[in-house]
């Protein structure tokens, strides 16, 4: 791996440790070097993005992957908060969930999501999905530098 390769920062907001583990594994199979940070719900995600304790050293992510069903602050509430925050609203947020409910899809885009991915059951399918995701966000499109 060339060390000068760009390292992309992804913040994963996911309350289920097994699911978070699967996402990490899938990124490790990908071709892009990803610096993956995990938080467990929307409250922690906002603390992370606002560099509140214990996240005072946190770096701004290039992309946020967001589960919908989480305790304390769910994905929709988080989307509403971040898209109302002038300092944070330019960070793209992609929903990553097991829900296929049309109402969840509609409301996520309405609240400013830049994608809605339904997690497959099969790990190999999931790895392929993560590679498509990487290709779009880290090769095809330009993102804000800071």
């Amino acid at each position: 791996m060339p060390s000068q390769q760009a390292l992309f920062k992804v913040l994963l907001v996911e309350d289920e440790p097994a699911d978070a583990h699967l996402v990490r594994l899938s990124f490790e199979e990908g071709r892009v070097m990803i610096d993956l940070h995990e938080v467990r719900d929307g409250v922690e995600a906002l603390e992370y993005l606002r560099r509140q304790p214990p996240f005072t050293q946190a770096e701004r992510p290039d992309l946020i992957l967001l589960d919908l069903n989480m305790p304390r602050m769910n994905g929709q509430e988080f989307l509403r908060e971040i898209k109302a925050d002038e300092a944070l609203k330019s960070i793209p947020v992609v929903v990553l969930t097991t829900s296929e409910a049309e109402t969840d899809i509609q409301s996520s885009y309405h609240l400013g999501a830049a994608g809605f991915i339904v997690k497959p059951v099969d790990i190999n399918d999931f790895i392929e999905q993560v590679q498509q995701l990487e290709h779009y966000w880290f090769k095809l499109v330009k993102r804000p530098e800071k």
Partner: peptide, 29 residues
């Protein structure tokens, strides 16, 4: 929900459009 800079080469552009299709019409709902 994305910012694509058009390349000069038509082949590169066709490749970009395919990747755009992959994301919006295969990967995401």
């Amino acid at each position: 929900a994305g910012f694509v800079v058009k390349p000069v080469s038509i082949d590169d552009f066709i490749h970009q459009i395919r990747k755009l299709e992959d994301y919006w019409f295969e990967l995401v709902r």
